[in-house]
Structures are given as C-alpha cells and as structure tokens.
C-alpha cells in the first residue's frame, strides 16, 4: 500500500494545520542547512564574518563611553546588554527572513510568485520562510555572549522568570521586525521596480541601538508605538536588567500578534495588485 505524506493531506483542525506547517518549516530548514553544508568553508567564513560585523557594531556604540560616563541612565555595562539584545533580535530576524525578503521583489517582477501562490499552503507563510540564513546564527550567539557579559559585570543574577520574559520579549521583537519589514517590502506590488526595497529595513532598525528612554517627546512615542523599534533592543534589555515596566510584556504580545495579522491583511490587499508576468 502506498504511503501518503501527511504534510499534503488537507488539514481540518487548528492543531492539524499547525503540525502541517511545522513539518513544512522543518523541511525548509533541513534543505537550507544541507545547502549551506555543501559549501562548508564558505559557511564557516560567513559565520565568522557576520560575528565580526556584529562585534564592530557593538564596538562603535561603546566607543562613546571612552568620552562620557553614561548615555541617559545607561552605563557602559548596561549598554552592552542593550547591544546584545539588539544583536539577537535583528540577527534572528535576518537569519529567518533575510533571503526571502530580498527575493520577494524578484518573484513579483518575474512572475515566479505564481509558483508560490499555486501551492496548497498559505502564500505569506511560503514567501516568508523559503530560505533560512544560518550564518546569522553566529551573531545571535555573539549577542547572547555580549548580553551575558554585561549582566555578569553588573553583578546581576536574573531568575528563570526574568530570562523567560527576556526570551519572550526578544521573540516579540523578531515578530514585530518581521511584520514591519514584510509590510514595507510589499510596496513592490505597487511600485514594481524597487529591487532594493528589502534594504530599507537595515538602516531603520539600526535606530534601535538608541535607548528609547533617552529620546524626547514624539520621537520616543513613535519609536515605541508607531515604528516599535523599542522592542528590538531597549525593552528586552530593560527586562533582563530587572527595570522593565509591567505593561511591556502584554503590550509586546498583543502588538506582535496584531502586527503579523495586519501584515497578512496587507499581503492580501497587495495580491490584488499582482498580475503574473510569467509565461
């Protein structure tokens, strides 16, 4: 009797769907890892290169402390925790979504998006997870190292609950970054020719290195609620330092779920602008 791959059997309940999508994601991850391991030397070089650039970013910001004692209320050790958190959130976002975001413009312009849309899975899911850049895991590990070093130098001993809160907030930061990035890349459905639209994310998210509490007035509010860069650095760092605010966690969870949901609405709207260009 022939076996049937359950990943492609129409699923009915939420849990079936979830299991099906997780299996699909696992298959993508295995494929990407196998592809990277085909060129091991290149992968090792890329891992070191990405960690090196993450290190440079941390060094640049902390050079300020050669000249001043604090930035706002942030000492140099606290800033290490912030930079570690920023490195973790941004590089996890790059690891999971970089290649797909940069490829979406090409899919739309060449009409290859047809091949995605005709698959029996959610289109947004498939365009978002088609590639994983494992080389960006090196700076993620580096970020954890920097944050841990900062915490150790401060003499803090965060409890299990603090670490769990920190990881959840980092996860929310990744979800918010994904939603912002994906929504901005969708602009290509209207403009057509913006091949570099995915590059818009990098300079924007670089502003997350600035602690939001040193900002004033409307800029601070914008960084928290409009373009929520606070969740890509400051908010997780404050949670790990034990100075987080109670509303951060529920707001982060609601905002990240809401932002991903809104990006899905925008995706569906953008698809109405899509006219296949393939033969």
């Amino acid at each position: 009797m022939a076996t049937v791959d359950t990943a492609f059997v129409p699923a009915t309940t939420f849990w079936h769907q979830l299991r099906r999508y997780l299996r699909l994601y696992g298959a993508v991850a295995r494929y990407c890892l196998a592809r990277d391991l085909e060129y091991r030397t290149n992968m090792v070089f890329n891992l070191f290169r990405e960690a090196f650039y993450a290190g440079l970013q941390v060094m640049f910001v902390n050079l300020i402390y050669l000249n001043v004692k604090s930035v706002g209320d942030w000492s140099s050790d606290q800033m290490l925790v912030l930079m570690g958190s920023y490195t973790i959130v941004t590089n996890l976002t790059y690891c999971l979504f970089w290649e797909t975001m940069t490829g979406l413009s090409g899919l739309v312009n060449t009409g290859e998006l047809d091949l995605v849309l005709t698959k029996p899975v959610n289109g947004q899911f498939l365009v978002s997870v088609r590639r994983i850049a494992f080389m960006n895991l090196a700076p993620v590990a580096f970020g954890f190292g920097i944050a841990s070093y900062g915490i150790t130098r401060l003499g803090l001993q965060p409890g299990l609950l603090d670490i769990l809160s920190y990881l959840i907030l980092c996860g929310c930061g990744v979800a918010l970054c994904y939603a912002m990035w994906f929504s901005s890349v969708l602009l290509v459905f209207w403009t057509g020719r913006m091949q570099n639209i995915a590059a818009v994310f990098e300079p924007v998210v670089s502003m997350a290195r600035v602690p939001t509490d040193v900002l004033r007035g409307p800029i601070r509010l914008a960084f928290t609620f409009v373009v929520p860069l606070a969740f890509a650095g400051t908010v997780p760092a404050r949670a790990l330092l034990g100075v987080g605010e109670a509303w951060h966690m529920p707001f982060a969870i609601v905002a990240s779920v809401g932002a991903v949901f809104a990006s899905n609405k925008l995706w569906k709207r953008a698809l109405r602008e899509y006219s296949s260009a393939s033969s």
Binding site: V68, V71, W74, P203, M207, R209, V210, L215, I219
Partner: peptide
C-alpha cells in the same frame, strides 16, 4: 540608499544627545 546615509549617523547623534 539615502536612508543608509541618513539614519546611522542620526542614531549616533541621538546617543550623543543622551550623553
């Protein structure tokens, strides 16, 4: 591409203003 010229130095300026 202009954002690459604008935002990184602007971020550093905001850090300095906090310092």
């Amino acid at each position: 591409w202009f954002l690459y010229d604008l935002l990184p130095p602007m971020g550093m300026l905001l850090l300095w203003l906090g310092a």
